[in-house]
Design a protein around this nucleic acid. Sequence first.
RNA 1: GAGGACGUGGUGGAACUGGUAGACACAUUGGACUUAAAAUUCAACGGCUUCGGCCAUGCGGGUUCGAUUCCCGCCGUCCUCACCA
Length: 864
Amino acid sequence: MDSSAPTPAASPDRYNFLDAEARWRQAWADAGCFRVKTDPARPKYYVLEMFPYPSGKLHVGHVRNYTMGDVVTRYKKARGFNVLHPMGWDAFGLPAENAAIAGGVHPATWTYENIATMGAQLKLIGLSYDWDREIATCHPEYYRHEQKMFLDFLKAGLAYRKESWVNWDPVEHTVLANEQVIEGRGWRSGALVEKRLLSQWFLKITDFAEDLLAGIETLDRWPERVRLMQANWIGRSEGARLRFAIADTDESRDFQGETVEVFTTRPDTLFGAAFCAISANHPIAKRLGEQDPAIAEFNAECNRIGTSEAAIETAEKLGYRTRLSVAHPLVPGLALPVYIANFVLMEYGTGAIFGCPAHDQRDLDFARKYGLPVRTVVRPQDGEAAEIGTEAFTATDGVLVNSGFLDGLAVPDAKRKVIERLETLGVGTKTIQYRLRDWGVSRQRYWGCPIPIIHCPDCGIVPVPESELPVRLPDDVSFDQPGNPLDRHPTWKYVKCPHCGTDARRETDTFDTFFESSWYFARFCSPRSDKAFERADVDYWLPVDQYIGGIEHAILHLLYARFFTHALKRCGYLGITEPFAGLFTQGMVCHETYKSDAGAWLYPEEVFTKDDGAHVDAAGHPVAVGRMEKMSKSKKNVVGLETIVESYGADTARLFLMSDSPPERDLEWTASGIEGIWRYVNRLYRLVVESRPRLAAPGTKPDEAHIATRRILHKTIAALTEDLEQFRFNRAVARLRELSNHLEDVAAKADGATLREALDTMTVLIGPMLPHLAEELWQALGHDGLLVEQPWPVADPDLLRDDTVTMAVQVNGKLRATLELPRDVSEDAAREAALAQPTVQKALEGRQVRKVIVVPGRIINVVG
RNA sequence: GAGGACGUGGUGGAACUGGUAGACACAUUGGACUUAAAAUUCAACGGCUUCGGCCAUGCGGGUUCGAUUCCCGCCGUCCUCACCA
């Protein structure tokens, strides 16, 4: 329990971190170590952690990814790069409004207070930010630029307004984008999302579907997982669109000459078509509904059924047989019935399909249910067409049958040929269909960037003139009733039309808050510019070389930001298409959960451990220990940042967060773990302080032991450098411990020069992870100036290679001996040495040696 | 339903490109120091063993001189998307 952890007191043999950490943070700030400027003469490196939403307070779980960015920044700086490492606040969002509703505090006040709190917390842990570049996206000097961008997008045809069925979150009282609906629920509220028909602003992300997909190939420093998720989200499929003419019958006089357009990925199965099905929101379904209350009711029912996993699994596939039928485009005289079906989505393809029961499972189920014919048109490559029972034949390596001019063709050839025919007939075309849909950016909320549009009864949609930007949020708003305060504001929305001067009204929706985070990385390049950013600055700094954030943004933010970069390029803002060259997705910090016997969550510091290991609360009542879960305020399994920094120091917390667990995996925060790191930090301190007297000792003639120490030192430099390059922080920590363990063993007998080199170098190596301690030790070692400005050590290649190698000796694959042999030992000599081993002879048990495999420097395997 | 990842001691994890499995830690146990504790420090720490070894990287096969690593089939855990035509 954290509460049982002693507060380490300062003592002569203990590192006084409280004093030292504050002192060195001040020294970095005074020297402006992390203030950078555009300098094309120097190589640049841009490190960025996903900026936080200022929700209240940070706990130790938040700090992990900032520490990773800090380690990279300090390391790259030592390697000579001009490193940009900025921090800011993703400051628009619903929690501020909820706080306003609950507590009567204005969202702006709430937000800026949280920014002050969290900013101070971040400064406690010694992060290498250029604070001069701090931005908050709720500031008009930030959001004015995205209003301009939106107007530019509008001019470029990348923004449009359209009435469509959208996802409505009934708890947040706002629309959500498709990316923000997870298993049918709002991504933040968890409420079941409803479908509503609303007029909304969209950004044309689909214009870049192909570019965004192709771009994924170039992102070779992104996790494979994220690339795959994005590719799946974009969801490219090749197929055909084709039009079925509505059959001219007595029942369909009013649809004469009209067509039903469908999308299919299996145009080759067209001869097996048994029906057409359209979405309940298809224009034809709506027209039919207007005439027939039964159809209207069926359509409404389809919209009521949710899209959650449970709803989909249990919902029956329902069809409503309309009075319409369509003519098969290739089979004269064949008419197919038209159904309205609850499983056809208006949002994908054309909102209509043709059903081929023999070769699609869902179509087969539907056909069996409604007694439709099942006609096999693809047979297995070798063999006859099997009788279709309850399972469709969906393999695509078959051969076409019962399909007229397609008979005998393989599926891919048949696809090609049938599309050719459809194109000749003028009833269809080859198409590429994406799952990706345009990004709906309108939100019916106050605390966001106003959409700079005026609705005029005469002129329609009129952009706010650029000279009038920014459109500022009004301060005087009330949250005493649900809905959008901007819409209820007494005066704000009433304006004159900029064109004709008549009474008009402002757009009262604000942008999705993902709008702000879609370009902030560029704003950091010129945070005080009166333009969105300066071209010279973004040309130098972008793309971000190392981006660090949570996997939860694998699609949402990362896709929006990639799209924005394409769109900004098209509008002439910048010259790149991919904003983030390298991406790292870090794991979460977890902690045990505690529950009192009354069922209430308890904070770790409210829980005590008795001698027998039982857990109790302050009153001595038993406490149930739950499983490790992501630190979260709601379950109270959080450890306060200040608590840890005051008890152990920032460096101890930082090193703990970098140790043991690989950075992409979850990390368990434990009291014993932090204790262990604290002990290690003190050992490092003592190692240096106690070695100081020996540094003055004259260098003796270097003997074997000194060379061994230097070898270990230089191997550590090489390995640690490689680990940092590859984001293997846990291994880097292990290597540091190997080095310091060795130095502790030899310090008392090492010669001055060797010890000096080793301790100086070790101090530089711990710098990225333990920056305060490193400065303190650097000073203790007698150096002037700041360690943070020291160059990274370079390993001497001669010291990376030993004179001898340890080779394993196996007999039939089993280890029987190890041999210390000269590095350049010949294969013959190695073989002889191995065979001479008594253990080898014994293991052979008198058998003939059939073969000896020698892998230089590694292994000798005797096969007998 | 589609796609993907992972599975190593009591625990977190290491093992380069197929080459000595368990680095580095945490926990535990025992010893030293101490009036005692804390701190520090030394040692043991996968299992079994007749002390020669044997068995061990989820399970079963395969390839190989040699497999935690490659291939096939299971089992389990996790993630993403999902009525996508």
